[in-house]
Nucleic acid binder design. Structure first.
Lengths: 144, 144
DNA sequence: CAATTCGGGTTGTACTATGCAACGAACAGG
DNA sequence: CCTGTTCGTTGCATAGTACAACCCGAATTG
């Protein structure tokens, strides 16, 4: 049991340390797209467009926060709003061509940074690490 | 190689998703100690006291940010400053008794949340996951 | 149809976290 | 001493965030 507790403690500590540095790391990697903007824009691309309310629900953010983030992204020309013809309250958000490019570029930089950092890992370890993270985050989703 | 790239991509995505939620999660778990305050205070306890500059270097923060965070923690009575007798520029920071209690309480809540979330993992998986996270973060340190 | 409620977004306000630049204080070496 | 370096604080600016109050359009209901 002590061994198990140790493992949990390390996992807690190391994930916390990572989270603590993530924002600054993102800012250094791609200054043009903050971690928040990156995740919102990536979600829009994944979902092939969605509403501001959906983003708020998915990232546990207040709708006002999302509204401002989207305004900023629109000002930068990274997202565009399309009013839903069936319900004029709703704006369906999509990345613009430019937004998609910037997102791809930031994504490539993130990917490269991770590739470098994991360069000396062997394939089997990488695969298991990826599987563990997936499993961990799936469990987290369920807690709301 | 494709398999390897997939693994890297998943690791990038899942760590990003975790980071994105960490702040809000911490706020829900222990409202009296934000993620930032928690990590700084925890580091002080781990290191049995250290300088503001050390905290800044470790967490990639500006020294002014650390200065203000420490001021806030001092105002709350969670840390105390001891001027180094050998160098009057330096303040060695320590958690107070109260700070240690609050830290222990927040730590217990974090620990419990992780224990719950990892309840159905077997010991060997936990140990390997912990080892992977340690290895990952060690590599990150070196890039600083 | 009119009135009410509901859902999606925006805006006002306030607060926290953060960085950069300018500074002050103290040490270190000539 | 004078100069450069290190540690920390403070002034200023900015981003991210929440909450509450609001507006607008849609749905419901009497």
């Amino acid at each position: 049991m002590a061994q198990r507790d140790d493992s949990v403690g390390i996992i807690q500590q190391e994930l916390t340390a990572f989270a603590r540095r993530a924002r600054a790391t993102a800012a250094r990697m791609h200054p043009e797209l903050s971690l928040v903007s990156y995740t919102l824009l990536a979600h829009l691309e994944d979902q092939k467009g969605c509403r501001a309310t959906d983003l708020a629900a998915h990232y546990l953010l207040d709708k006002s926060t999302v509204s401002r983030q989207i305004s900023a992204l629109e000002r930068l020309g990274f997202v565009e709003r399309r009013v839903d013809p069936d319900d004029h309250r709703v704006q369906v958000l999509h990345p613009t061509e430019l937004g998609a490019q910037v997102l791809a570029s930031a994504g490539a930089q993130r990917r490269q940074a991770f590739t470098d950092r994991l360069a000396d890992w062997d394939d089997a370890d990488l695969e298991r690490f990826a599987a563990y993270l997936l499993r961990y985050n799936e469990a987290q989703q369920c807690l709301g």
